[in-house]
Deep mutational scan, measured.
Amino acid sequence: MSIQHFRVALIPFFAAFCLPVFAHPETLVKVKDAEDQLGARVGYIELDLNSGKILESFRPEERFPMMSTFKVLLCGAVLSRVDAGQEQLGRRIHYSQNDLVEYSPVTEKHLTDGMTVRELCSAAITMSDNTAANLLLTTIGGPKELTAFLHNMGDHVTRLDRWEPELNEAIPNDERDTTMPAAMATTLRKLLTGELLTLASRQQLIDWMEADKVAGPLLRSALPAGWFIADKSGAGERGSRGIIAALGPDGKPSRIVVIYTTGSQATMDERNRQIAEIGASLIKHW
């Protein structure tokens, strides 16, 4: 067993022997301040990774656009098919120029040779490549099948209805392509620590998230040296922004954090800054 596999296998073990965790309302004060600064709703939840206990939450059962955070769930569904012998990570998928959609920095470079399922998941999570996500959605049967996968996990809230990039439209009061912070946090925890996926697939999923290259201005910008984070960000229309993450000190994750916002007129930089400040408060009061 590799060191990384050992780390993920012992996530519940280490967490069980940690000192009790206590909620700190100071972080919620910052979440509410972010709402004021952005002029928009902000949803927040913080779960203990081992027990699933909610440590703090704000608007945990209000719907927010998922945006690209759905790509972690998508690759979880792909990995479940791999575990069941219905898919192979090494299978190569070929596609054409007509398949390319807006923001496809990886797939646009491989029109000639195609990409493997493993490479597509890596591109979808680490670079948020939209064509990679659409190609992977095709392998599982489309958005409705991802929703069905989530329902089978016990998540009857999260739903995907459309493809990239239309799913980022974020129309107010439109339930399409949305989740709730509580539902997303619980589902992410199941994917990373539950028995739904094999140990190898859980490790692969967290490795992809740990290698995320496009979430630097968010929670990662607030992390002290030595902290662990595996995350996936999302951005959408109407001032929408979000991030889902597993993080913790001492090089291992111990909490799940989900943050979503929508309806702001603020710039992307300002949305990023507010999420980073929430992260800084979380870490300060850990």
Rank of each mutant, 00 (worst) to 15 (best):
R41Q: 10
L49A: 09
G194E: 14
L223P: 02
A230C: 14
A132C: 03
I283P: 02
L55T: 08
G52E: 07
L47W: 03
M209W: 03
A123G: 06
H156T: 13
Q4A: 12
I125N: 03
V101Y: 08
C121L: 05
R220F: 03
M127P: 01
A215D: 02
E108P: 07
H151G: 12
I3Q: 13
I259T: 03
T158G: 05
A185Y: 00
N50F: 10
T186L: 15
S2I: 15
L120M: 11
M184R: 00
G39D: 12
T262N: 10
T186M: 15
F22S: 15
D33F: 15
N168T: 07
T138L: 12
S68D: 00
F14N: 02
T187V: 08
L150R: 00
A230V: 06
V258R: 00
L205H: 01
A185D: 00
H24R: 13
L89G: 06
I244P: 00
G251C: 09
G236D: 04
V31Q: 01
P224F: 03
I171S: 14
A230D: 00
H24P: 06
P105L: 06
R162L: 05
Q265G: 13
D129P: 00
Y44C: 03
Q204E: 14
N98S: 13
M1N: 01
A246T: 12
R238L: 10
K32D: 05
P12E: 06
G234I: 00
Y44N: 00
N98D: 11
E46A: 10
C121F: 01
K284C: 09
S2T: 14
D129M: 00
L160F: 10
G242C: 06
L219Q: 04
D99R: 07
T126L: 08
S240H: 06
S2D: 07
M184Y: 08
R189H: 13
E237K: 13
V31K: 00
M153C: 15
S254D: 13
P172I: 12
E56V: 08
K32T: 09
D207F: 10
E270Q: 14
A34S: 14
H94Y: 15
R202K: 15
I275C: 05
E210Q: 13
L120E: 01
L247E: 02
V78T: 07
F70L: 05
E237R: 13
K53E: 12
H285I: 04
S51V: 06
S240N: 07
G52A: 07
P165R: 07
I243V: 11
L150I: 14
A183W: 08
A266K: 13
D155L: 01
A34H: 03
G39R: 14
R241Q: 04
F13E: 02
A40Q: 09
P181Q: 00
I93N: 03
M67K: 01
E270T: 14
T267V: 10
A15N: 06
D36F: 15
A280W: 11
A200R: 14
N50M: 15
T187L: 08
G248H: 04
E175C: 12
L135M: 10
A225E: 14
C75L: 05
G239S: 04
Q97Y: 15
I11L: 08
M153V: 14
G251S: 12
I278F: 04
R220Y: 02
A245N: 01
L19E: 07
L55P: 02
E169H: 11
R159H: 12
L282I: 13
Y44P: 00
P181R: 00
P249F: 04
N168E: 04
R162T: 08
V42R: 00
G52W: 05
N130S: 05
S233A: 08
S264N: 07
L49G: 05
K144I: 13
I206D: 04
F64T: 01
S281P: 03
F14L: 09
V82A: 10
M153K: 08
T27M: 06
I140D: 02
L191P: 00
G248T: 01
D99Y: 07
C75I: 07
S264I: 04
M268P: 07
T198S: 13
A124F: 00
A15L: 15
T187R: 01
I171C: 14
R63D: 03
L136R: 00
L146I: 09
V101G: 07
P172G: 10
V21C: 15
V29W: 15
K109V: 12
D250C: 12
P253K: 08
T138I: 11
I125R: 00
F22M: 10
S221R: 12
H151R: 15
I3M: 08
P224C: 05
I11V: 12
D161Y: 04
A235F: 02
P105V: 07
L49H: 05
L218R: 02
P20R: 13
N152Y: 13
I259N: 01
K232G: 00
M66T: 06
L10K: 05
D155G: 01
G76N: 01
L146T: 04
L135Q: 07
P165Y: 05
V101N: 07
K252W: 09
A170S: 12
E237Y: 12
I206C: 14
D161W: 02
E210K: 11
T116W: 02
A215W: 02
S233R: 01
N168A: 08
L120N: 02
L10V: 12
I54N: 06
W163N: 11
P172H: 10
D33G: 13
A15T: 15
L79T: 02
T147V: 11
N50H: 12
S128W: 00
G85P: 01
H285R: 11
K190W: 09
L218M: 10
I229D: 01
M1S: 01
L137N: 04
S240T: 07
C75A: 12
V257E: 02
I256A: 05
E61I: 09
R162M: 05
H151I: 10
Q204R: 10
D207Q: 13
A211E: 14
A9P: 15
E270P: 03
F149A: 08
Q4N: 15
T131P: 03
V29Q: 14
V106A: 10
P60Y: 08
A235I: 04
L150P: 01
R202Q: 15
G43K: 00
L205Y: 02
L79Q: 03
L89T: 06
A123T: 05
F64G: 00
E164Y: 04
I256V: 14
D250A: 14
R271I: 10
L137V: 08
K213V: 11
S254W: 09
R162A: 06
L49Q: 05
D83F: 02
L135F: 06
M66I: 10
I283H: 05
R176C: 09
E277G: 10
S68F: 00
L150V: 13
P25K: 10
R92V: 14
N173E: 14
L74H: 00
D177T: 01
P181F: 00
I278N: 00
A266D: 09
E119G: 10
L19F: 15
I45K: 01
T139E: 15
R41H: 15
S80W: 12
G39E: 15
T262M: 09
G251Y: 09
L191C: 07
S240A: 13
L167I: 13
F149R: 07
T178F: 02
T147R: 11
E26A: 14
P172S: 12
L10Y: 09
L38V: 07
P20N: 14
G194V: 07
A34E: 03
K144G: 15
L19A: 15
L192M: 15
Q4T: 10
P20M: 04
S104V: 04
L282N: 03
R271Y: 03
N272E: 06
W286S: 01
N98E: 15
R202A: 10
E87V: 09
W208R: 01
E35G: 05
E166G: 11
D174P: 02
W208Y: 06
E270Y: 07
A185G: 13
H5T: 12
E277W: 06
I259L: 10
L28V: 11
G234S: 07
I3S: 14
I278M: 09
G216E: 07
I283E: 04
F14Q: 03
R63G: 04
I256L: 12
P224K: 07
L146K: 00
G52N: 08
W163D: 09
R59Q: 06
N50Y: 13
V101P: 02
L196G: 12
A9V: 10
I93S: 03
Y44T: 02
E195A: 06
G76M: 05
A222N: 15
M153T: 11
L74T: 06
A276S: 13
